[in-house]
Each structure stands twice: as C-alpha cells, then as structure tokens.
Design a protein around this nucleic acid. Structure first.
Lengths: 139, 139
DNA sequence: TATTCCGGCGCAACTGAGTTGCAAAATATA
DNA sequence: TATATTTTGCAACTCAGTTGCGCCGGAATA
C-alpha cells in the first residue's frame, strides 16, 4: 500500500526512508507549525539530531515545508499548501502565533496586506507575523 | 560638557561607562539597525563580548533600543524613537531589509497595516518585515 | 579631593544549537 | 540478487549566547 507520505516523497524524487516518513507524517497529522525542538522530541527518540536537521533541510529545499520567522528567534516549519516547488517558495499567507497555547499557524486565507513604502523603496517580499489568541484558546 | 549620550544614560538612571557611551554612540551615529556582530566588530576591539551582550540587554530593558526580527534568524537592534520606557516597547512601525546592501531600517512613517483575521482570532501585536531595495540602493 | 561602596567589566568556563567528515547501513537500480 | 548510490549515525567541531566571580572604575558622601 502506497501511503500519502510515500507518495509525497516519491513525487519529490526522494528516497523513502524511515526518518523521512516519520517526520513528514508529523507534519501531516499535526495542525500548526513545528519547531525543530518539537520534531526532535517527537521523532528524535528514534533518530539522530543530525538526521532531523538534514531531513528538514531537504524538505525545505524540495518545497515540501517552509520556514516561519518568529520574534523569539526560533525557526518553525510548516507544510507548504500550494504551489511551492524545488528552489521556489510561494507562500503569500500570514503567520499567527498564539500567546496562550504557543502554537504557530499558517493563516492560508489571510493574504499579506499591501504596504505603502516611502518614495524610493521597492518591495520584493513581505513577512507578516501576528501574535494574539487563536480560535481554540479564545474560550 | 554633557553630551547627548551622557544625557540619555542619565535619564535612564544608568551609570555612564565607557562601553555604554561607545555602544550608544554607535546607534546615534549609524542609520539603520545593528546586528550584534556589527557592534562587536565596531566596539569589540575595546570591549569584551560579554560586555556587548550585557549592554545591549540593558538598553533593551530600559527601552532605549528595540529588537527587530529577521527571517534569517539573526537579531538586530535599533534605537527606539518614540514613547518606549522601561519594560514597555511601543514600536508600531514596519521594518525594511535591503537585499542589496543588507541594511535594516525602521520605517517610522509606515505604520503596521490592519490585518483581517479569521473569525475567533484576536490580534494583540503585528510584526511586518519587508524585503526589497532601499532608497540608497535603487541607483 | 579623598574615601567608601556598589555596579559594571573582563576573564574563563560552560551550554546548546547547528554543522561537517566519514564509515556503516539502508535504499534504489539493474 | 548484486551493485551503485543515497542516507544515516557517530564523533568532533564551531559559534552564539550565558553564568559566576574577582577586580576595577564610576557614583555618592563627607
């Protein structure tokens, strides 16, 4: 039986290995973004730190996941939903960090707002991170 | 003669020391934000790494400077222009990173745009980082 | 100005994240 | 199955940032 995980890996011409399956599965089953630490904790009992680093890097390179900047200087990763492919990410959505539960979410439906820059400035990319209370925590 | 630097330090009830004067002066004379590395390079010949770290932390705590998140996971610091005081930063402007010269600027005149969140999400803080070509580099 | 006191500094040592080289193991290919 | 290629795990390393502590310099008082 070919699982969704196997399929994604094959489509990206990656060898199907235990660690890749495990880590990719984490992203498919979890809502929200994962920090490196989360992944290491959840998959790291079985795999080496280095393998986790390399696997994440591979996934980013292939456009399977994308990184999310955070104010506290920790990198988080989330699945790319749309048309990302090798070497090119096209994430035009904003990211939301819940200050209550700490989870990071891609708000796919909220596109990045237009920003009016001063004269002489040319914009090529805009990152928006909103902090607040998420839908699950608003009680 | 009481310099601007001395004045700022005194107003924040900080001892006026060589390292604080030197580092604060860097911020006052430079345009744009400084990464820790920049500061260490420019002031570090005279001062210990640890002193630079501690001085920056002190300035952030006092509301003299603020940190700027960057996508590449390096922290940058810039002077607080307006009503920041101990324990509370009120920076409502966006940040701009020039992909040509690498400098990071606070665009004080560009306020953070309103973002429409999905139902159930409450926003408390929004960070916007725009990448592109700055006024000096547009040639 | 001299003296005392306390905060700030430099040093050394440590922690933790992330990286690299290489041999062994797992996967793909024929 | 045999061979070639890719990936993994281990060990060792680098680099950013932190902590403890003794000493020095700035601030306060006389």
């Amino acid at each position: 039986m070919v699982t969704q995980v196997d399929d994604i890996l094959r489509r990206n011409s990656l060898s199907v290995t235990e660690s890749r399956k495990k880590i990719l599965n984490l992203f498919l089953t979890m809502h929200g973004a994962l920090a490196h630490g989360d992944i290491e904790r959840k998959a790291g009992e079985k795999f080496d730190r280095v393998t986790v680093y390399r696997t994440l890097q591979t996934f980013v390179d292939k456009g399977i996941i994308h990184t999310i900047p955070t104010t506290d200087n920790s990198v988080r990763y989330a699945l790319c939903k749309d048309n990302c492919r090798e070497g090119h990410h096209h994430d035009n959505h904003i990211h939301f960090i819940c200050i209550k539960c700490g989870s990071t979410l891609c708000l796919e439906d909220v596109s990045v707002p237009e920003v009016r820059l001063p004269k002489g400035f040319i914009s090529s990319e805009t990152e928006v991170v909103v902090k607040g209370i998420c839908n699950d925590c608003k009680q």
